[in-house]
Design a binder for these strands. Structure first.
Length: 574
RNA sequence: CGGGGUAUAGCGCAGUUUGGUAGCGCGUUCGGUUCGGGACCGAAAGGCCGCAGGUUCAAAUCCUGUUACCCCGACCA
């Protein structure tokens, strides 16, 4: 490719719309342009990277016996009604209606479609297992699209669905995909961690997320410094190490705490540790009000709470509901003598002795409250948010916190969708069985963004070789110098013939402009043809990542470059 | 969905307070001089001032409505 002909409109200035580095650099490097919020056009360079990632995924899926197919983006409402998700999915589902008034959705995911296919076409255990995958656009009407390709409303995704006869088969499929995904991300040059995660609304039992470590990541994870444990904070299990204190239970009494609503205020007003205060949070669910209790120095984990309650919608109650429930202003709710709500206590709360809680009376708290004696929760569970410094649930080592970009997730779905949609087969005994499903997804466009988050410097992108749009850029210092151009052209032809993906910067620009653009776009290798090439027959090979420069005789440049490219690609597989 | 902000040339911005008919830098085009890290000189093209209504002799500027986009939060297979 000649840069004089390539549509790669680079920008000197940072576009006002972009905030995170991957978004800024993709815009500046002329790889993407925004069409609407969360909707982007991929320009030639950007699309080449996407295709590289897709090809890597394809190879790994095919290696594990995956079969690629293409599913429709437009999906009839009937299937979504059948699975029950037409109503559950909410505003995030893009909906549309055809001229006959029939409802459709733009697919945010394809469980319904694929299960429909398989239930119609697969009848026998002899046809299982099946690993079916596709790579295409998906649609989610995100409330708040952001960060460029990181959270779009239209995005490219690979998803694979596994159909097995039983749990053991699912386990095998799951492990295959876990391995395949790990290889995909390694090959993309990403530093990632696999973490235990919460299955969320998609349902199912076990699930792991593939997290690319980056400070700009939207997900918080914890990992153990001593063992292999790593989890999304939504999922991370809290460990209760402390014993019930031997402290004698005192009689509870109300105390006046004017204006003290928050834990800090109560703590300083009564001169007690936050650890001795029970934090009472009022939540609204579709099944009524819930009072959730955690220790004063802890944060609640709403995902855990939601799971404990088996609730579809959970949010903090507004002031009015709190007042109605407690008869007091917010800030004074407590579990003692409260009626008409479910009380869910964190396991740690049950160990507290002579604690402080709100009295359900404005400006009043109760001291010497003893869980079990003064109130009995409807349920005791782990509902607190784990944080750095907490003990590891596996080995009691110390947990650290980090941020990550979720680029992939693997789920064991079980029979949720096969049951809802009736995907069955006949086993050896002629008995009808439900297929056991798994689903696995990679955010392709997001993976590209994540790769940039991890691979850039002040000058621009530093593509890992396997996903670089081109392996090398050839820069003749002066496009007007016939000798330089001749060397550059012949090098370009030889490299291309040898399978090295190269571009030649034949633009009539000053060298500074070419170097700046080369750095910005992030070609892993830069081959400069200057006066030395003409006079001494040597070219300069510069590595984008570390700035190292090596020189080579023109004759030996092609095999040398080819070797560097091959070595770096091979390295990603190691 | 709640809070905040922005909308003026391809990009980044000024002009809006105090109405008088639109400007700067970069980029683009043409000519020339340059040529190893975003050159210089000269000329030029390019603007429903987000959109709709209103006030006024006159609106980018004031008023009303509306849309889009960005940020924080909530939410998120």
């Amino acid at each position: 490719m000649r840069l004089s002909e390539l549509l790669a409109p680079t920008l000197r200035e940072v576009p006002a719309e972009a905030e995170v580095i991957s978004h800024i650099l993709m815009l500046r490097a002329g790889m993407i342009r925004k069409v609407a919020s969360g909707v982007y056009t991929y320009l030639p360079l950007g699309y080449r990277v996407i295709k590289k990632v897709i090809e890597i995924i394809r190879e790994e899926m095919d290696n594990k016996g995956g079969q690629e197919l293409m599913l429709p983006i437009i999906q009839p409402a009937e299937l979504w009604l059948e699975s029950g998700r037409w109503n559950v999915y909410g505003d995030e589902l893009f909906r549309l209606r055809d001229r006959h008034g029939r409802d459709f959705a733009l697919g945010p995911t394809h469980e319904e479609i694929i299960t429909d296919l398989v239930r119609n076409e697969v009848r026998s255990y002899k046809q299982l297992p099946l690993l079916l995958y596709q790579i295409q656009n998906k649609y989610r009407d995100e409330r708040r699209p952001r960060f460029g390709l990181m959270r779009g409303r239209e995005f490219i995704m690979q998803d694979l669905y596994s159909f097995d006869r039983d749990e053991a088969g699912l386990e095998l499929s799951y492990r295959k995909m876990y391995e395949a995904y790990s290889r995909v991300f390694s090959r993309c040059g990403l530093k990632f961690r696999v973490v235990e995660a919460d299955p969320g609304a998609i349902g199912g039992s076990s699930t792991h997320e593939f997290m690319v470590m980056a400070d700009s990541g939207e997900a918080a994870i914890v990992f153990c410094e001593s063992c292999e444990y790593a989890a999304n904070v939504e999922k991370a299990e809290a460990v209760v190490d402390e014993q019930t204190s031997a402290e004698e239970m005192l009689a509870w009494e109300e105390v006046s705490t004017p204006g003290a609503r928050s834990i800090e205020e109560v703590s300083s007003f009564l001169k007690v540790d936050p650890q001795r205060i029970i934090k009472s949070l009022v939540y609204q669910t579709e099944d009524g009000i819930v009072l959730a209790l955690v220790r004063g120095d802890r944060e609640i984990n709403e995902v855990k709470l939601q799971n404990v309650l088996d609730s579809l919608r959970l949010f903090m109650a507004d002031e009015r509901s709190v007042a109605e429930l407690t008869g007091a202003e917010p800030g004074f709710a407590g579990p003692v003598n409260i009626k008409g709500v479910r009380v869910i206590a964190d396991q740690e709360v049950m160990l507290m002795r002579n604690a402080v809680t709100g009295a359900n009376k404005t400006d009043t708290h109760i001291i010497n409250v003893n869980p079990g004696r003064d109130f009995i929760p409807d349920k005791v569970a782990d509902i607190r948010l784990v944080k750095a410094g907490d003990p590891c649930p596996r080995c009691r080592g110390k947990l650290s916190e980090a941020r990550g970009i979720e680029v992939g997730q693997v789920f064991k779905l079980g029979t949720k969708y096969s049951k809802a949609l009736g995907a069955k087969f006949l086993d050896e005994n002629g008995k009808e069985q439900l297929m056991v499903m798994g689903c696995y997804g990679i955010g392709v466009s997001r993976t590209v963004a994540a790769a940039i988050e991890q691979n850039h410097d002040d000058d621009g992108i530093i593509w890992p070789m396997p996903i670089a749009p081109y392996h090398a850029v050839i820069i003749p210092v002066s496009a007007k110098d016939k000798d330089q151009m001749k060397i550059a052209e012949s090098l370009y032809i030889s490299l291309t013939a040898q399978g090295v993906e190269a571009v030649i910067d034949d633009r009539n620009e000053r060298p500074g402009v070419k170097f700046k653009d080369a750095d910005l776009i992030g070609f892993p290798l830069r081959i400069v043809i200057g006066s030395k090439a003409v006079e001494e027959g040597v070219v300069e090979i510069r590595h984008r990542r570390n700035g190292n420069v090596q020189t080579a005789k023109i004759e030996s440049a092609v095999p040398l470059i080819k070797k560097i490219v091959e070595d770096e690609i091979a390295e990603s597989l190691a």
